[in-house]
């Protein structure tokens, strides 16, 4: 929509004015890097600003720049006609505050996220988006992870995995990440001798170990959460809840049923989720996931049969 383009450009034009008012004369290259456009675009923007002004549009009514500086590809604002950057629109405020809230809710965001959120809401007021239950990450554990990451030391963790198995392992922590609403620790696990992405709310204890971090961080975010295969599950609408919040799920809904397509990183874990709505399942693809489902179901029956 043409209107959207105009909103984007006017926001940047006002941004350039505001930047120059606060930072002083700035070359086009730095403005380009700051606003994520080309230097040629900045030159066009400055030219447009130079032509704008108050009704009358004589020289003293116009936004003005230093002409010599312009020839040197430097924007030096000499008269802004009182223009400044404008306030956040309601949608913008809600988008920014909502995204910050979502990051805080994962328990993985640095303290600066909460303080930035506080500053924004103080100024903008409530936007209608609230975090009700942040992921339960023990502040003491979080503190020792932060400390170990900062000092590049390994840390010994007690971890309960997705199958509720507890293990003790020494890992080299790299960074905290937020993926699909949950907080994780990205690390190199010395026990598995591979990269791991561990959920923060499943870490029961974390103790610094006197071993320096030697492995470089993984190239890719959430490395060990990568999908092994794609699954397609058809389920009656009553069973929708079990599939609707699977990571990266795509849902197709008809009157009677829901078809969910999602990547599977851990077939046993996905099978466990499907068991929760077993009476509503219509079909499960591929065979790999059916096998995992059959095995779990048979084990459950073995201990619950009379």
């Amino acid at each position: 929509m043409a209107g959207d383009r105009a909103v984007g450009r006017v926001t940047r034009l006002l941004g350039i004015i505001e930047y120059l008012e606060t930072q002083g004369a700035t070359d086009f290259a730095e403005l380009a890097a700051h606003f994520g456009v080309s230097a040629a675009q900045i030159e066009k923007d400055v030219t447009l600003l130079w032509l704008s002004g108050r009704p009358g549009y004589s020289h003293e009514d116009l936004i003005d720049f230093d002409g010599f500086a312009f020839d040197d590809k430097v924007a030096d604002l000499t008269n802004a006609q009182g223009l400044r950057q404008v306030s956040y629109s309601p949608r913008e405020a809600a988008a920014l505050i909502g995204a910050l809230s979502a990051l805080v809710a994962t328990g993985a965001a640095p303290d600066a996220a909460s303080s930035a959120l506080g500053k924004l809401t103080t100024v903008v007021g409530s936007t209608g988006v609230e975090v009700v239950s942040a992921t339960e990450v023990d502040p003491a554990i979080r503190g020792s992870l932060d400390e170990s990451i900062a000092t590049r030391h390994a840390v010994e963790l007690t971890y309960v995995d997705a199958h509720q198995r507890r293990s003790v392992r020494v890992v080299e922590p790299h960074r905290l990440v937020a993926i699909d609403g949950a907080g994780y620790l990205e690390c190199y696990c010395l026990r598995a001798d591979d990269y791991r992405t561990l959920r923060l709310d499943r870490i029961e204890s974390a103790t610094a170990v006197d071993v320096m971090v030697t492995h470089p961080p993984a190239e890719k975010l959430g490395f060990s959460l990568d999908a092994g295969f794609a699954a397609t599950v058809r389920v009656a609408r009553a069973g929708r809840w079990a599939v609707e919040d699977l990571p990266s799920v795509e849902l197709e809904t008809t009157d009677a049923e829901v078809t969910a397509r999602f990547p599977v990183a851990d077939a046993d874990w996905a099978a466990g989720r499907l068991l929760a709505v077993a009476p509503h399942l219509r079909s499960v693809e591929p065979q790999e996931l059916r096998d995992a489902l059959a095995e779990r179901a048979a084990n459950v029956l073995a201990v619950h049969g009379d």
């Binding site: 941004g15 606003f35 965001a109 990451i149």
Partner: peptide, 20 residues
């Protein structure tokens, strides 16, 4: 874009934190 209009370029810090 609005928030960063008042921030000097390159002011932001590198964080040990990332998001998908």
């Amino acid at each position: 874009v609005k928030a960063s209009s008042r921030m000097a370029h390159g002011q932001a810090e590198e964080l040990p934190f990332a998001t998908a």
